[in-house]
Nucleic acid binder design. Structure first.
Lengths: 291, 291
DNA sequence: ATAGCGCAGTTGCCGAATATCCATTTTGAA
DNA sequence: TTCAAAATGGATATTCGGCAACTGCGCTAT
């Protein structure tokens, strides 16, 4: 018994005549009659009573009819749902973000939602390195992380650059708006990221390029705590610009780092290179490219 | 897209290899590959990713898989449910009863329930004439009513005969156990049924056969009220035996009617003659015949 | 009352579409 | 390069739908 036969049966029940049902199905009546007989044989019981002007549905027939409606409807829904998922109109976008503070990212989501209103989301916040692992494990499809990225099995879409700022407690003497790495060097630094990752690596790079060693106190991946520690003059730090925008109101001094254009962090959207993305994710990438 | 293809797809997803799925489906690998392509074409999106040792299911594919499981399962359930209804193991028995007091009828239901535990019931109590109409309108399949029946488009299964009793208030002088119609004649009678129906008709018949006219006060289809009226010596009445068993404790005299064997009422099971009964109803008839 | 007519459904047969198989080629991974 | 898995091509078999003829039933008209 297949879907086609169910459709036939539905037509027969609703038209209450085989010939009328055949007309509705755009076919001739003999094959319809045969299919009905085939179903009755397969199910081992009469489905309709052929007597009188209109045929009557038996109890078994009406049971089948009810279920047939359900099945065919489910089938239609399935088809359109799969097609929608295939076209990215429906489905789930699983994405990890490290720095949600990237300017305009909420706006991008808003745009995406407007264009694809039936997409649901799974947004995870975590460290860049962990997000990479999640992408690799196919737990999430996309991730917005801090670059650079040590591995090359990812496709990367560079989103934006941003300068780094040197921050200290208000207790310290003020500089002008800018400060050089050489001037920073004596300050004990608390890094805003884990060793081996993007920001960490970038800062060390910049120092080593001018043959200096920063004074490292340690690292702290909790930004609020880091800013509290800086406020308390526990240490100074170097943080990306968006972070300052995001955590305003701390009594700290912030100075743009001058003398080198290299100390800028970038944020990028990554996904697994040789793996097919869901259409929803593809659409998301496309949209973010055009903004 | 039909059920067969859904089964194919389920096998492919679960085996994660087309060739393995083909083996499980007892078919060769090429047609399965083709069917998969056909589905992908019809749905307009890739369903699996053919790369690596095992193929991977895309989001659209997993959507389809989930629904396919549901549909195929629903299909199986439908098939077995319809087959059960066809065999009378399942379904609804719709029956009307006039005199539920018929000896052993509850026992019959109990037996039936034991034999066919998944049957549900719709039991209606009403006048015999109304039950006939309900059977004719196909609102109920069976009815247990008082005979005789004026119409012949029903099949009838005679269930039992029972004698009639003459009942009066205790105020009246006692007879011996029996009484003849001739003795009854002068008593004003309140009939326990509506004019033109079984009991009514039977009593008049018996009188006319011995060329007598009973003294008719009227009729009352509410048995409790009728017995109350007899108790109050409003009138006497003639009622079938089971009715006395059912309504005991009324201060009345009851006398078996002697002299004629004709004044007995029967109870019968009826159903529409030229119409197919549900298997459940057929089973019920069969069971009641063997008791 | 019976013959005849028409409608609805069934049966039988044929042609076309399509599902399956086998053999082979292509692809991708180790 | 080799091997396994999937895709392709061609042949065959199943089956599905259409057409024509037959049956069964109810209605009408003579």
């Amino acid at each position: 018994m297949d879907i086609r036969q169910l459709r036939y049966f539905i037509a027969i029940v609703e038209e209450r005549k085989i010939s009328a049902a055949a007309k509705r199905l755009h076919m001739s009546q003999p094959p319809l009659s045969q299919q009905l007989q085939a179903m009755e044989k397969e199910l081992g019981s009469k489905l309709v009573e052929r007597s009188g002007k209109y045929l009557e549905v038996t109890e078994a027939g009406s049971t089948l009819y009810k279920n047939a409606l359900e099945i065919t409807q489910l089938m239609e829904e399935t088809k359109s749902e799969v097609m929608e998922v295939g076209r990215g109109l429906n489905g789930k976008l699983t994405i990890g973000v490290n720095t949600f503070s990237v300017n305009g990212l909420p706006k991008v989501f808003k745009h995406f939602q407007k264009k694809y209103p039936n997409i649901t989301y799974k947004i995870q916040q975590n460290e860049s390195s962990h997000l990479c692992q999640l992408v690799r494990d196919r737990m999430i499809e996309l991730a917005i992380i801090r670059l650079p990225l040590p591995l090359d099995d990812f496709s990367v879409l560079h989103l934006c650059n941003e300068p780094f700022y040197f921050i200290t407690s208000k207790d310290h003497p003020s500089f002008n708006e800018e400060i050089s790495l050489t001037e920073i060097q004596p300050y004990p630094l608390l890094f805003p990221s884990t060793e081996g990752l993007g920001v960490h690596y970038l800062i060390l790079e910049a120092f080593s390029r001018i043959k200096l060693q920063p004074t490292i106190v340690g690292e702290c991946s909790d930004i609020s705590l880091l800013l509290d520690l800086v406020t308390a003059d526990f240490a100074a730090s170097i943080v990306p610009e968006t972070l300052l925008h995001r955590f305003q109101g701390y009594p700290i001094n912030a100075y743009r780092i001058s003398g080198t254009t290299d100390l800028t962090g970038s944020v990028g959207l990554i996904w697994l290179k040789d793996h097919s993305l869901s259409k929803a994710a593809q659409n998301f990438i496309e949209l973010i490219q055009n903004v």
